[in-house]
Structure formats: structure tokens, C-alpha cells
């Protein structure tokens, strides 16, 4: 059902996607965006611009009102409910609101993503410890996530998202509650996973994490794709494209 994708192929493809929340909130308007396998993309934009909505469409937590969403060659509109796990296992998502189970331990929360894929218990434990070490949370292994600080919870959410080595990582505001040093650790983890082949989309308004980056930066403005560029966003901060014009994404990536 799910076909293999070569490293250079498009793994996430949105074509003229519109998302209208009831009754008439236009969260996304005619967004077209193609992301290649192995890419690391920053998704920026003001609060309410539609970043979370975009990520939710990719993981099929929402259905587009109009347009086509294809992930790893699957047209998500045609993916039956009972096969949805096939998609979800290839995607690791760190939610903006974390979605942690607060009465379970840090280790249990991270393990969930690997358990559903029937990983060996030994593998699960090793991977959990490794991630906690990378995120500087070794001592919180058996702490209930409800007792953690926001920043710590955020890191657990990130660890769970990447634990099972998903092909696609969607991180929604992954550094919102972190100090500069911890942010650097998280970004290092993402870069490392990206170097190992994962496709990563990071939705953020933290300009410090993408300022010096050489990766593509996609900006949403009131649900419209405003710019897509490589490197520092200052390169296109002066451009004021017509709100109604077609997205410039194709032009910039071709």
C-alpha cells in the first residue's frame, strides 16, 4: 500500500490545500507545498497563521476542506481509517500541547511510540535512555510527566516523536519553553536525525533557531503561504507579495 520513496523524491505534497474550520475560520488558503525526503524545513508565521493546522493535515488529524495532501505517495483522502496506523507510524509528531499522559512516567510516555510498533522491550529501554541522555533528562526516567516543568514536558514530547526513528518528524513549536542551551540540544538532535535521513518540519516562531540555518524556511501569513526561501528569513522579509497571488513555493524550490 505504501510505496517506498527514493531520497530525492517528494515525501510531503500539498496541492492547493484549503482548510476552513466551522463556521468560517480560514486556517489555510490554497496552500501548495512540496517537501523532499530528507529535507529539514522551518515553518514560520505569526500566531494563528495556520502552522499547526498544516501539520495536522499532514498527519491526517484533520481533513482538508479542499485540495490534495499526499504523504509518502499516499493520497490521504483515500487512506481508509483502518490503515491510518501505517501512515502514523511513519510520522513522529511533537505536539504543541505535548499530549503526554501525565499519570505515566517519562519512560512510559516515550515507550508508547515504540510499543505500538512492537519493538523489543530491550530496544525500547535502550532508546529511551539514549534520548533522555541527549535531551539532558537522564534523572527524570521514572518521574511522572505531570510533575515535570513545561520545558521538561516539551522534551519528553520531542523524545516520543523521534523515538521510533520515523521517516517524517513534525515538530510543532518544539522549543517554545526552552532556554537557549536546551534549545541547542534539541536542535542538535533534529539535525542528527535529519542527517540520518529523516524529513523534518519544524513549526516555530523562534527566529533564533532558523536564523543561521541553511535550510528552507516556509512562512505562512493568515493561512496563506507567503514565502519559501533558503537561509535567513531576512532575505525575503521585505517582500510583500500580493495576498491573493498564487504561492511562490514552486518558483523557489525548482
Amino acid at each position: 500500500m505504501i510505496q517506498e520513496t527514493s531520497p530525492t523524491s517528494i515525501i510531503i505534497d500539498l496541492i492547493k490545500v484549503t482548510k476552513v474550520y466551522a463556521p468560517d475560520v480560514e486556517a489555510l488558503v490554497e496552500v501548495s507545498l512540496s517537501i523532499h525526503a530528507g529535507e529539514l524545513v522551518f515553518l514560520t508565521g505569526m500566531s494563528g497563521a495556520g502552522k499547526t493546522t498544516l501539520l495536522r493535515l499532514i498527519s491526517r488529524m484533520e481533513h482538508p476542506t479542499k485540495g490534495l495532501v499526499e504523504v509518502a505517495g499516499i493520497d490521504l483522502a483515500k487512506l481508509p481509517q483502518r490503515s491510518i496506523h501505517l501512515l502514523r507510524r511513519r510520522i513522529g509528531m511533537a505536539y504543541q500541547d505535548f499530549k503526554l499522559l501525565n499519570d505515566k512516567t517519562v519512560a512510559d510516555n516515550i515507550a508508547i511510540a515504540m510499543e505500538v510498533a512492537y519493538r523489543q522491550p530491550a530496544f525500547i529501554e535502550k532508546r529511551t535512555r539514549e534520548l533522555l541522555h541527549q535531551l539532558d533528562m537522564t534523572r527524570k526516567y521514572s518521574t511522572r510527566t505531570g510533575e515535570l516543568s513545561r520545558g521538561e514536558q516539551q522534551r519528553v514530547a520531542i523524545a516520543r516523536a523521534v523515538a521510533n526513528y520515523p521517516e517524517i518528524i513534525l515538530a510543532d513549536e518544539p522549543t517554545g519553553n526552552l532556554d537557549a542551551e536546551t534549545t541547542a540540544k534539541v536542535m542538535e538532535l533534529f539535525h542528527q536525525l535529519n542527517q540520518n535521513g529523516a524529513t523534518i518540519v519544524i513549526a516555530t516562531h523562534d527566529s533564533t533557531i532558523y536564523q543561521q540555518a541553511t535550510h528552507r524556511i516556509v512562512t505562512l501569513h493568515a493561512g496563506r503561504l507567503r514565502a519559501s526561501a533558503f537561509g535567513s528569513p531576512t532575505a525575503f522579509s521585505d517582500t510583500r507579495p500580493n495576498e491573493d497571488s498564487a504561492p511562490t513555493e514552486e518558483a523557489l524550490t525548482s
Binding site: S59, M61, R82, I84, H85, L86, L87, R88, R89, R90, I91, M93, K99, L101, I112, A113, V116, A117, R160
Partner: peptide, 15 residues
Amino acid sequence: QELKLLRLVGATNTY
């Protein structure tokens, strides 16, 4: 809440 999350991380119905 937990069951919803299991869905999100790719658990099958059987699981």
C-alpha cells in the same frame, strides 16, 4: 485520552 494518543502514534485497532 490515552486511547486517542495510541491512535495518533500509529497503534492498530488490534493493538
